[in-house]
Design a protein around this nucleic acid. Structure first.
Length: 499
RNA sequence: GGCCCCUUCGUCUAGCGGCCUAGGAUGCCACCCUUUCAAGGUGGAGACACGGGUUCGAGUCCCGUAGGGGCUACCA
C-alpha cells in the first residue's frame, strides 16, 4: 500500500444529507479539517445522497450553518464550488456507472440478478448472499438482461487470502478475504452504493487522506480491493474513534432518546442544539478537539489555530470515548470569562430579546463584567439578569421567602432595610458600587448584623431574586432612585405581613 | 452467532520498556476568600480490567480471558 505523503493534503467530510447535523459527524469532520489546516491543504465537503429514501431536504443548509458557526471553512463543496465538482453524488451518476461497467468488463465485478425474495431466503438461511450469480456464463447474463430482469453490480471479492493495509491510527491491519461478501457496487436503480461512490469520488477529487468513523473498518479490506482493481493510487486512511453516550453505553445517537445531565438539562447532541443552548463556538471546538486528541503540555484550553499547528491524525487515540459533556459547561464558562465584552454583549442581546425583553445596549454593556464570571451558558443570562430589562415601573416586591435570608426573620429584615435606606440616600448620584459597599459595611457594623445579612437582604429587595449579580453592581445599574424605591417597596410588603 | 476494533482515576486524557511511589483536566468533597450564586486559591479521595508470558526491568511488547463498541443491507 502506498503510504507516501508527497502530494497535496486534501481531506473531506462526506455526510449523508439526513437532516440535523450530529455532533459525532461534526467531530469526525473536525479532525479531517484540522489535518488539512495543519498541512496547508484543502478541506472538501461532499454530499453523499446515493440513498434517495434517506435524503431529507434542507440538510445541506444545516450542514453549512453548523460549519459556519464553528468556523470550519470549506475550500470546495456544493456551495463553494471547486475544480472537482459536482460535489453532490446524485449529480455524478454517469461517472459511477462508467466505472462500475469498467469493473464488470475487466472481470472485477459482475451483474447479479437476485431478487428481493431470493435475498430474503438466503438471509433466512442464516448466511449472506451466496454468490449464485458470480459465475454466470455471458450468454445467460445477456438472456436475463434481455428479459428485462433488474440487476445490481457486485464486486468479485477474492475468496481466499488476506488483504492488508495501513491505518494511520492503528498501524498495519490484515483481514481475511473469506469473511467479506460480494458487496453491491451499483444498485438496480442506477445509484451507486457508498462502497463504489466514495472511492470513485475520492480518486477523482484527489483526496489524500480519508478520515472516517471506525464503523467503516470492517469494510476497509473491501475498499482496498476496489482501489487495487482500479489500480488507482490510494489515499491514506484513518479510522476515527466514535463518541459513546455519556454513560459509556452505546454509540451516541440522535435517534435514541435525549440524555439528561445531573441538573436535568438536556444534553446537546445536534449542532443546532449547541447554538440554542448558549454555547460559544470556540468552546465547542475546544471541547471536541480534546476528545480523542489532546494539545499536550497539560494545556486544556487552546484555540483552533493553536490546535491546527500540532494536530496529527496519527496521534488520535484509537479508543472510543464517552461523551464528556460536563466538561463543556466548564469550558464554556472559561471562554465567557475571557471573551471580548462587545462580543458577549452581542451574543447575549438576542437571547434577552427572544425572551421578550427590551434590551438597552448601554445597560447590557454595563452588566457584562459582573455577569461573565457566573454564566455557564449564554442562556443563563435570563434567570440571572433578565430583571434588569423588564419594565422597572411595574416591579413588585418579591415574596417573603425570597426577601428573608437564611438565619433571618421578617422583623429583622425590615429593620435592616429601614436602617440601610438613609445611609444609601446620603450617597451621591453616581451611586458607585465601592461607595455603596463602604457605606453598607459601616452600617452593618453599627446595626449589629453581619455583612452577608445586610447585603443579602438588599440583593433580594432590589433584584427580586435570591441569585443575582453582585448586590452593589446591581444597585448601581438600577440607580439610586430605583434602588431605594424598591427597598421601600420591600419594607412595605414585609411590614404589611407583620401587621 | 461469525468477523473486526478498543481497554490508564466516575469521565476526558498524559504515558510510546527504566524519568511512574502513574501526571493534567473535569466532576465530587473539604478549607480559604467572600456580597447570595459563581469565579479564584489550597488540599483530599480517585485508575494502569484480569491471567499468563517476553525482559535485568512492563501501564508501556506478545498471547489468552473478560468487558465495551462496531460490522454482518440494492443505508451510509
Amino acid at each position: 500500500m502506498n503510504d507516501s505523503t508527497d502530494r497535496p493534503v486534501r481531506t473531506r467530510y462526506a455526510p449523508s444529507p439526513t437532516g440535523p447535523q450530529h455532533i459525532g459527524g461534526i467531530r469526525s469532520a473536525l479532525f479531517g479539517w484540522l489535518y488539512a489546516r495543519r498541512h496547508g491543504g484543502q478541506f472538501i465537503l461532499r454530499i453523499e445522497d446515493t440513498d434517495q429514501k434517506r435524503s431529507v431536504p434542507g440538510s445541506l443548509e444545516q450542514i453549512l450553518e453548523a460549519f459556519d458557526w464553528l468556523g470550519m471553512d470549506i475550500d470546495e463543496g456544493p456551495a463553494q464550488g471547486g475544480d472537482f465538482g459536482p460535489y453532490i453524488q446524485s449529480e455524478r451518476l454517469p461517472l459511477y456507472r462508467k466505472w462500475a461497467d469498467w469493473l464488470v468488463e475487466r472481470g472485477y465485478a459482475y451483474k447479479c440478478f437476485a431478487t428481493a425474495e431470493e435475498l430474503a431466503a438466503m438471509r433466512g438461511a442464516g448466511a449472506g448472499y451466496d454468490r449464485r450469480y458470480r459465475g454466470l456464463p455471458a450468454a445467460q447474463v445477456a438472456d436475463l438482461e434481455a428479459q428485462g430482469r433488474l440487476f445490481v453490480i457486485r464486486f468479485k471479492m477474492p475468496l481466499t487470502g488476506k488483504t492488508s493495509g495501513q491505518d494511520m491510527i492503528r498501524g498495519s491491519m490484515s483481514f481475511d478475504n473469506s469473511a467479506l461478501q460480494d458487496a453491491v457496487l451499483l444498485k438496480s436503480d442506477g445509484f451507486p452504493t457508498y462502497h463504489l461512490a466514495h472511492i470513485v469520488d475520492d480518486y477523482h477529487m484527489q483526496i489524500s487522506h480519508v478520515s472516517r468513523a471506525v464503523e467503516w473498518l470492517p469494510s476497509f479490506p473491501l475498499h482496498l480491493q476496489i482501489w487495487d482493481a482500479f489500480a488507482w493510487r490510494k489515499p491514506q486512511f484513518a479510522h476515527l474513534p466514535v463518541l459513546l453516550n455519556p454513560n459509556g453505553k452505546g454509540k451516541l445517537s440522535k435517534r435514541k432518546e435525549r440524555f439528561v445531565d445531573g441538573g436535568g438539562k438536556a444534553v446537546p447532541v445536534l449542532a443546532h442544539e449547541f447554538m440554542d443552548a448558549g454555547f460559544l463556538p470556540a468552546a465547542v471546538m475546544n471541547f471536541l478537539t480534546n476528545i480523542g486528541w489532546n494539545y499536550g503540555d497539560n494545556q486544556e484550553i487552546f484555540s483552533t489555530a493553536q490546535a491546527a499547528k500540532r494536530f496529527d491524525l496519527k496521534d488520535v487515540n484509537p479508543a472510543n470515548s464517552a461523551y464528556p459533556i460536563a466538561k463543556l459547561e466548564w469550558l464554556n464558562n472559561q471562554y465567557i470569562q475571557t471573551a471580548e465584552a462587545d462580543y458577549l454583549a452581542r451574543a447575549l442581546k438576542p437571547i434577552l430579546e427572544e425572551a421578550g425583553f427590551n434590551v438597552d445596549d448601554d445597560r447590557l454593556r454595563q452588566l457584562v463584567p459582573s455577569l461573565r464570571v457566573r454564566l455557564k451558558t449564554l442562556n443563563d443570562v435570563l434567570p440571572m439578569a433578565g430583571f434588569f430589562f423588564a419594565d422597572w415601573a411595574s416591579f413588585e416586591a418579591p415574596v417573603a421567602d425570597i426577601l428573608v435570608q437564611r438565619k433571618m426573620d421578617r422583623a429583622g429584615t425590615v429593620e435592616i432595610l429601614r436602617g440601610a435606606l438613609p445611609a444609601l440616600e446620603q450617597l451621591d448620584g453616581d451611586f458607585k458600587p465601592d461607595e455603596q459597599h463602604a457605606a453598607m459595611a459601616a452600617y452593618a457594623r453599627n446595626c449589629g448584623y453581619k455583612n452577608g445579612q445586610v447585603f443579602g437582604s438588599l440583593r433580594a429587595a432590589v433584584s427580586g431574586q435570591k441569585v443575582s449579580p453582585p448586590t452593589f453592581d446591581t444597585m448601581a445599574i438600577l440607580g439610586k432612585a430605583e434602588s431605594t424605591r424598591r427597598i421601600k417597596l420591600a419594607i412595605d410588603a414585609l411590614s404589611r405581613e407583620l401587621a
